[in-house]
Design a binder for these strands. Structure first.
Lengths: 343, 343
DNA sequence: CTTGACACCCGAAGCGCTTTGGACTCGCAG
DNA sequence: CTGCGAGTCCAAAGCGCTTCGGGTGTCAAG
């Protein structure tokens, strides 16, 4: 079933049928009705490739995920982000294509992506500090939005990011207010921009109270459960162990909890934990009473917002770069309490 | 940069250039070299849409994920599956497009997907028991492979699945061998086919020893941490509590562990836990010594295998349906031990 | 009666590629 | 010298759609 057949079936020209279906005004309401009805009946829907060729728009957005030979791989956040973005695409009639690429010849990859022409815009995931992809994409003249930001790049570009520094500053302050002075930071990989900013927030909060960060209380790594366990395990074994932890993800926090229990301490009483929580659909932090005190920001919402921004820029390429900074909420759960009195 | 310009630049016809680039024999090796070099230099890569139009192949695979209004949403397994599938696509030069669809007018969705013509094949996720999409897709004459299976459908189709029943039979037997008699099953949603089969395996193993499943020890739900916690919490509060749990995912198992600790018991001594483990990249079950005894099967491998099967069928549509049953490994970790003696 | 204006519709070109059906040039056997 | 196959290359059609640049026919205004 294609346009030609449909047109023949209706005794109309392809032109008219095409216009009728695409809502152009130079076609009578009556024939438009006839056409749309016939289209539905015969299960006609236009061939996207042909349409794309003719219009120059692919009606699709590309998500590029670096899948480096180290183990970053697809991270748990991705599913929810995509779900959010999909909401936006669904409404706008856009498709989504995924490219997991090794990060060898990045430049070539993006250039090809553009030349192949099956996406109208790109969402960039997992920006590193001064990420080289950003200036490159800017030069490519293809609309893109970064999920996150890249520090130390002053060139303007579109991004949607959580205020990571602010979130960790608040979390740190919260713990400081509870009397904690030795706060372990169990961070993500710090060449990733978000993790870098989180450490900044943490250190700023400490500095504001005249405290210097203890290197023994800072750890950076991939945010798995065993990593959280190990990091907490080691720090708790110190002569002067931390009374509180700040972790970068719920999964890591779960590992921290395991380590705390294993040493016979109790979370929320002997040791406090505040975690960042991406509010993932399958990793809920409890219902009414959150298990962990957390700084929470829905990555699914971020996905929707990022996609909407991109679609705006695809529709109007002349738009100046736009940015959105999302604020994370601090929600109080059962994992925090006043610092235990020293004895 | 397109074919026409490249041809002009080389003083050749589009035909010859196209053939040179696509490895056809009716072009001299010398000109082929000239052409490929010029193509690389000028950063030419063919427009995928035009190519698709001309060849009738989209060089892309569609993943359709039901995103129902209930809360299944994108599940944590998805990211790893996609990473595996990408390996196969990358090698074969295929792209991947994602469609998250509401499950209202499924039939219409798939029909449109085919008519739009930007995928050559489909991977079906999350099959339910006697899933209606399977007969429908068969009728559509578009190659597809199901990740999982649908019980109570005797029609042939391509699938890649883990032997869920076998895995849970083995896990149950393992616990029975350790002397456990009251084994709680904390399962996924049982209208999903995989969860249904897991229960079957569990019940078969019990039946083989003349045990009847206690309804109070069976629970079905979305595999979140709080769900695992709640289920275990409730069962442990029974007059005759279970001495072991069988859980459907690592995340759920983590909730179970929390419940066990909360009642002052110790996992692996007072209460045993065996979990299903999808071997997710970001949710590792410990390194050398696994935290949980688990039945493990890499969902990432499954993704690769499924994609490879689909590509085979896209290349040769006449191939008869093919199936692959993956066996899960039983790996022993610290979460299991002999049933505590009754007193 | 002619002229625009308007509403409606159509033919055909063109998007960038592949592929069919030749065309041309050699070299070699007849 | 002719014929013929092999080796190279090309022109043009076609994939399914949009869209430009007209074409009708009707009707009110001039």
């Amino acid at each position: 079933m294609n346009l030609k057949m449909l047109a023949a079936h209706l005794g109309l020209s392809q032109t008219t049928v095409s216009r009728a279906l695409n809502g152009y005004p130079e076609v009578s309401e009556e024939t438009r009705k006839r056409v749309t009805e016939a289209a539905r009946e015969l299960n006609y829907s236009p061939n996207a490739r042909a349409k794309g060729l003719a219009t120059g728009r692919a009606m699709a957005i590309g998500h590029v995920i670096p899948i480096s030979t180290q183990h970053e791989i697809v991270n748990p956040v991705f599913g929810d982000f995509v779900a959010g973005a999909s909401e936006a695409y669904l409404k706008a009639g856009y498709d989504m294509t995924l490219s997991l690429t090794g990060d060898e010849d990045e430049a070539q990859n993006y250039r090809r992506l553009k030349a192949k022409g099956n996406v109208d815009g790109i969402i960039l995931h997992g920006p590193k500090m001064k990420d080289a992809r950003i200036p490159f994409l800017t030069g490519l003249k293809m609309p893109f939005v970064v999920h996150g930001r890249a520090s130390e790049l002053d060139q303007p570009y579109c991004w949607v990011d959580v205020d990571n520094a602010g979130a960790f500053r608040r979390a740190t302050n919260f713990l400081l207010d509870l009397g904690h002075r030795r706060i372990g930071l169990i961070n993500g990989l710090e060449f990733m921009d978000f993790a870098h900013r989180r450490r900044e927030g943490y250190e700023e909060a400490l500095a504001a109270r005249g405290l210097a960060p203890d290197p023994a209380l800072g750890r950076s790594g991939e945010m798995t459960e065993p990593y959280g366990y190990l990091a907490a395990h080691d720090m708790l074994a110190l002569a002067d162990p931390p009374t509180a932890f700040l972790t970068a993800s719920l999964i890591t926090a779960i590992g921290v909890r395991r380590a705390i229990h294993e040493t016979g301490r109790e979370m929320g009483r002997d040791v406090s934990v505040v975690t960042y929580d991406d509010d993932l659909s399958y990793l809920s932090n409890g219902r009414d009473v959150p298990i962990f005190t957390a700084i929470r920001s829905s990555v699914r919402d971020a996905g929707r917002i990022t996609a909407e921004m991109l679609l705006r820029h695809v529709a109007t390429p002349a738009l100046p770069p736009e940015t959105t900074l999302l604020e994370a909420q601090l929600i109080i759960g059962g994992s925090t309490g006043p610092a235990p009195a020293k004895h």
